[in-house]
Design a protein around this nucleic acid. Structure first.
Lengths: 252, 252
DNA sequence: GATACCCACCTCTCTAGACAAGCTGAATTC
DNA sequence: GAATTCAGCTTGTCTAGAGAGGTGGGTATC
């Protein structure tokens, strides 16, 4: 119990490790309540700040979540699948067995917030779209929610000169969406490029996605190219990584 | 004393926000030294633990990094590009301009640690490979380093019965690697599936990848399928998200 | 039986100290 | 000039308190 001639590991890490092991072992399962600050203070004979630090480690790892006034609980993980390449994904491959048993039950994604505006695109995006300085972009911002929880922020940039007058500049783009309208404008997207990063969210992102501490975000940048190789759309997405598994299917 | 009818924002968050803003504005640039604990104590008139908490927020977000005995610094981000689909990536698309100006200068990835063993695969992987309980898998574990920094842990699972006697069970798989050997065995991979997650690393992963606090990892699970639809390999990879941008190219 | 209130419990924030340990650079010694 | 030592900076860990504020369950009231 008391601190012995231990190796050189901080107390708070040792406590965090104990708890982590107990979670891994199944002693505590998703949704269960973990020992709180007071429990740890008593059990290990440490100060409140030290117990807090230990619990903070688990929260920072996304393993545990604290509910003020209630306690600290083991978090759950039930992602939705986002298929980057629809064309190939419904083939015979895979036979349903996935490494992560994602909740496939295609729950409905709905748009929660939607704004359309014309403004200048940030430098790197303007470069990809081939916009000259001062040239405007049509920016469609959307937030998607699933079962009441926001999971995705999307910001789509299109050359304003290209889409002017089309329904792309309206909140409702009509049947087939933006890509169908682009096709009508003679700029049918035929090729896509997706770039993916992961990092911890900014305070703003964390708030808009209602993220718990310890939850990273995916940054997905999708660029759509027309037949002539010209980029016609850049879609910048921020995804709650605790809600998503990204999937890509392709042939050798 | 000074804790006035402030809005309901903790001091440490306000301080962190101030610093974040100064970083965003370019006042502090990647590699620059940030105000330390003592600076913040003096500047804001708070206790050491409060100043520490503010700096801890930025470290948890992966924005800043602390070097003991030296100070706290703004972190840099220079990812390498991992192309999921080579077949399409070198086309005319994209014309070099990327949204994230990744260091393309294809620096060399080298294998640092390598073990080959036969053992039972974890349950979900065994299911994907169609292994019956008790059936073994050939497990190739590798760690990749770039410029001395470990960036990728890979663990490849193949049915032991399939690869027995081939060079796949040897440390050096020979020219063309595992996939060339699989082709010789009549199981040429013709289709791939990649599933991607992101989360905070376990303590073990953080150590093996030498990750700084506030750095998430990518989990990439790649499954290779032979012509008959049978999965012949599952490759489980853990990537340092601060070192990678994942890329996928595909046609509509 | 349903509702409103209150109190005990829990986490969150913060203070004001203390000692440990890593790093840097300057002074000292060889 | 080169090597060594050391002082003083830094961050890391920890203690022992305190008040604020959210939550939930029990109690009293209607």
């Amino acid at each position: 119990m008391t601190s012995h001639p231990r190796a050189t590991q901080p107390k708070y890490q040792r406590i965090a490790e104990d708890l982590r092991r107990e979670i891994d072992s199944g002693r505590y399962r998703p949704g269960d309540r973990l020992p709180g600050e007071n429990d740890l203070m008593a059990r290990y004979g440490v100060a409140r700040m030290t117990a807090r630090q230990a619990l903070g480690v688990l929260q920072g790892e996304g393993i545990a979540e604290a509910r003020k006034g209630v306690g600290v609980f083991v978090r759950e993980f039930r992602p939705i699948r986002r298929r980057g390449i629809q064309r190939l994904s419904d083939r015979t491959w895979g036979s349903g067995a996935s490494v992560w048993s994602a909740d496939i039950a295609s729950r409905e994604l709905t748009v929660d917030q939607l704004t359309v505006a014309e403004r200048e695109a940030p430098e790197p995006i303007a470069a990809v779209l081939g916009l000259k300085p001062g040239e405007g972009a049509c920016v469609r911002s959307r937030r998607f929610v699933l079962d009441g929880k926001p999971v995705l922020l999307a910001e789509s940039y299109l050359p304003a000169a290209l889409v002017a007058g089309s329904r792309i500049t309206a909140p409702d783009t009509g049947p087939g969406g933006t890509y169908a309208r682009l096709a009508e404008l003679g700029c049918k997207p035929v090729h896509f490029q997706e770039h993916i990063r992961a990092r911890m969210p900014s305070a703003d992102e964390a708030e808009r996605l209602a993220l718990l501490p310890g939850t990273p975000v995916f940054l997905v940048h999708r660029t759509a190219f027309a037949e002539d190789g010209q980029a016609v759309e850049v879609n910048e997405m921020v995804l709650d990584s605790a809600s998503y598994v990204l999937e890509y299917d392709f042939d050798a």
